[in-house]
Write a protein that binds this DNA or RNA. Structure first.
Lengths: 226, 226
DNA sequence: GCATGTGAATGGATTCACAGCT
DNA sequence: AGCTGTGAATCCATTCACATGC
């Protein structure tokens, strides 16, 4: 059952599923809080209680990268956090460009989560020439879409964010891929056509709203739900 | 295998999972496009090709609410769309309030998906008194947080949107629940404590970014991925 | 013939429960 | 004693494949 001699445990080479990845991110945020509270050690139960998750789930997820906990004690908050940051690729900083300098783009460029711990917005681009030269509150400048190529080259941008209103999303996305962007976070309400070697993450607000609506309807119709 | 005599098929009473719900929403968008293209009939294969999904999956999902397709032909676009809109609770319009009149709140209030086909933003609220009275481009007014209660009562608001920067999110959320809001869409990077009878939908941008980062790292380390 | 609807088969993910370490 | 790490069991989701009906 071992196709690769290195598969056993050290620097564990397990696949790590999509769902696990998302949870690792949640664990990481929780660990950051624990660290800032000065807590040195945490058990899977403790974590499970804070997040809404089963403790065995947490242990399984963490087992993806070798043994790390101490039996009878738990996990070192500092060490585990470092490990997760490494696993998620947050030890190097990823340069990002946001396409669309409207309200959404501006909200994102100023968001804490977009400018800390592994990420940095280096520029915004917009088709509207009137927007060129504007700067966000935190000092990121808006450039014409045509300068995307040189920005990506100069700053080795890895991540592109689509914050434009829908119809031109696929075009801009194609352009991003053309100039060498490797990962895209898409807020436009369109299914972006996938391309080999490029990772796309969709944030579909309409799906979220309709999920809420669906549950509201269930509740109305008497089916007990939360 | 039938605990309920009504379980068989008419107006099907199957549970409908979380994942299915999300896909129904995607199908619905696709059907809207098909309808505007004037296409009258669609097969599960056609849909499967447009969306990135297996055709059996689509049929299973749609089977949740009784037989609806025509064998040998497919589904009526108009009828199926109407059925999905009904299932997702989009035939009545849900009133929404957005907490936070910053860039994010303004982006959302102006977003097409927040003001059409089942949803309507009736007000924004903000703690900053300087924001009171401001109107969004599409005419939605900003009120002080303290008027939330009366707005929710007057407009029978069902959905609250948390578009504030993190730390006060839980408080505002609690307040929303207190004044009778039943469903919450949360953009703040905090796990909102769940409460019985209230549905919470988290949109965690940090998780999305870190997922991208993780895959970038995989690609770097040589594991083939997309 | 063609596409739906669905039991059966497969594949994953979650949870259980306990052996093993500290 | 307490908690991790993990096989085994369970649960859920997806896919296959075909009988059923247009």
């Amino acid at each position: 059952m071992n196709q690769d001699p290195e598969t056993s445990n050290r620097a564990g080479r397990e696949p790590i599923s999509e769902l696990t990845t998302a949870r690792l991110s949640v664990y990481l945020r929780c660990l950051a809080e624990l660290e800032s509270e000065g807590i040195a050690t945490v058990s899977s139960q403790d974590l499970a209680a804070r997040i809404h998750v089963n403790s065995a789930q947490i242990r399984k997820d963490l087992a993806c990268f070798g043994e790390f906990g101490i039996r009878g004690v738990g996990y070192s908050v500092i060490d585990l956090r470092a490990r997760l940051r490494d696993t998620l690729g947050l030890t190097t900083t990823h340069a990002m460009v946001i396409a669309g300098a409207g309200n959404l783009g501006m909200a994102l460029v100023n968001a804490r989560g977009f400018n800390s711990d592994g990420f940095k917005v280096v520029a915004m681009v917009d088709i509207d020439p009137a927007k060129t030269g504007i700067r966000s509150r935190n000092g990121v400048e808006v450039y014409p879409l045509s300068s995307l190529h040189s920005i990506v080259k100069r700053e080795t941008v890895e991540i592109g964010v689509i914050a434009i209103p829908g119809d031109s999303a696929q075009q801009v996305c194609d352009f991003m891929i053309e100039v060498g962007i490797l990962a895209i976070l898409n807020f436009a309400p369109v299914q972006i056509k996938p391309r080999a070697g490029v990772r796309i993450q969709e944030v579909d607000l309409r799906v979220n709203l309709e999920t809420l609506s669906f549950h509201l309807k269930l509740a109305e119709d008497g089916k007990l739900v939360l």
